[in-house]
Write a protein that binds this DNA or RNA. Sequence first.
DNA 1: TATCTTTGCTAAATCGATTTAGTTAAATTT
DNA 2: AAATTTAACTAAATCGATTTAGCAAAGATA
Lengths: 342, 342
Amino acid sequence: MKRTSLNDIAKQVGVSKTLVSFVLNGRGKEFRISEEICRKVLDSAKELNYQPNRLAQGLRTGKTKTIGLIIADIANPFFGKLGREIEQEAARYGYHVIFCSSDENPEKSEQQIAMLQQSQVDGYIISPPIHSEEQIRSLSKGNIPYVLIDRYFPGIESNCIVVDNFEAAYQATNHLLKLGRKKIANITVNLELVNMRERTEGYKQALADRSIEVDENLIKVLPFSHDNKDVSTAIRELAGDRDNLKVDAILFSTSKIGIMGIECVTEIGLKIPDEIAVVSFDNADAYKICVSPVSVVAQPLKEIGTKAVRILLDEIAHPETLRKRQKIVLKTGFIVRKSCGS
Amino acid sequence: MKRTSLNDIAKQVGVSKTLVSFVLNGRGKEFRISEEICRKVLDSAKELNYQPNRLAQGLRTGKTKTIGLIIADIANPFFGKLGREIEQEAARYGYHVIFCSSDENPEKSEQQIAMLQQSQVDGYIISPPIHSEEQIRSLSKGNIPYVLIDRYFPGIESNCIVVDNFEAAYQATNHLLKLGRKKIANITVNLELVNMRERTEGYKQALADRSIEVDENLIKVLPFSHDNKDVSTAIRELAGDRDNLKVDAILFSTSKIGIMGIECVTEIGLKIPDEIAVVSFDNADAYKICVSPVSVVAQPLKEIGTKAVRILLDEIAHPETLRKRQKIVLKTGFIVRKSCGS
DNA sequence: TATCTTTGCTAAATCGATTTAGTTAAATTT
DNA sequence: AAATTTAACTAAATCGATTTAGCAAAGATA
């Protein structure tokens, strides 16, 4: 069953497909097509259930109304929620989103960018993995619209939407300090990612501002792709002797780590918050219902998503403004729950 | 900076673009193109960083190597994980995935199908909302490749991958019964969805098989789009008097409900599992770390995702087999944790 | 009446690939 | 030497839209 094309309508009405195209694009008036013919064309289009072929449109106009989204992992609720906001905002403007999970792997993201490029996406929203600088730089050079989210590369002038990770971590750490915690650990991942580095720096600064010496042994940097075991090892090392704990609080730099961490802490039998307090980045569902609901840094996902889409679409619509790239830093929230005591 | 096309290569090498197309499609031998020219073409393609334009390919061949995925909500970890599997499996075959969240809204899904159709996707993987029968039927009629996941419509012969919801719910309920629970409630949503109905039926059967009369008051069906408040109301109604509980266990038909439910149960101050036992569908992260880790029905997400993609790609590759549609029912797992006592 | 405008429409080029139907020159057969 | 086959390649149509350039007829102006 072949789909109906402009030509089919043109034939049925007995006019040229040029005219049909004009009418269906709502430019009938502009091209002085008579009311009657306009009506006939529209009727015919409805009758034949005409659906424009976006490939043909895209090939001709150079615009596909599709954007490529590259994130670490769509199964990770943080990116899931973010992706949802992006999808929603994009849909409002008639744009599709092709989702790609890079697993923080630069080779994957490179391949994904290439694929998306072949599909002629109009622009990209990317949460770039480490070592993908060249990929991003080459988008810049090619004057290809893109917006980075969650992280960015300090050396590359890009449009990007991030949160104030330093401030957020500072605030979270300070919250622990104010409640009397002294031996605060930080479990994080891959400090080559700016956002992660900023978090750990905020943590350090908070300690420093209270004249607490930073003990590098209390900062655990998990391997690239980490699982339960890695987190477990880190926590056992941190805790040390069950009856003489080396730490009294942990700042988790991601909710993925935090959830595994709490699972592990519970397993060891440490009481939260009595023996050990915890705070974490990202307001995961799990944190709301766990033994002691966890205080968290909440990111403004809706704002990140909508801003990213809007800036991208703006770039797409006005390529000439490509030079003024903007870095937008959003404020995070801090939700106090029971995991830090009181 | 214009992208390089077949023509550019053709000009540089001094041959026709027909030849270039043959060579780049690896059909040089087949068309007796000389070794030397082949090499030159390939070199030139590499030098000019040729990337085929998928729009043009798609327009000509009628295949876009893109599949449309319609699910309820990508921010819901269940669908997030499923989406991830689908994306991954599709990528293995060079396919892209366009993600659409329908919010269980048939108007949205209808619009999304139309959009995807315009984008000429090769096929669909859909978790169809209620009242979308006509949309699915029309795909069938149009001989358009599609696979349903998570649910299906009994009246429509479709390819679909689902789990044995009846059996899973039966097993979960039975688990509660075996541990001595007598007054078991079920909180679910929208019984018009087959999968939800099957779950509640499995629950009923388990009770019946132990000669326990089904009390319809213990089955709470939440409104279409539910939030914390709805769950809270349901649970407060179920529980009744704090000191004389009307129920001693709850089966949550989805993890979204379950997570909110546990939040609420904790709020009321009921002890899990002592005062009230819980089991839930879907192995959400939250269930691993909450007060009493929750026993769950675990769905084989990887299998659902990969099977869905494979069947779909098979349909796409062999449209003539469109008639033999298959319904695949997978087994679920049951993970025992502490939420039911012992 | 001749010229200019306006109205209402169409032909054909174009985007970048694929693919069918040839073509030419060389090699082989008769 | 003529006829046939093969090797190596190309022209042009096609997919379905958009868009530029332009045409014919009617109405307005000089």
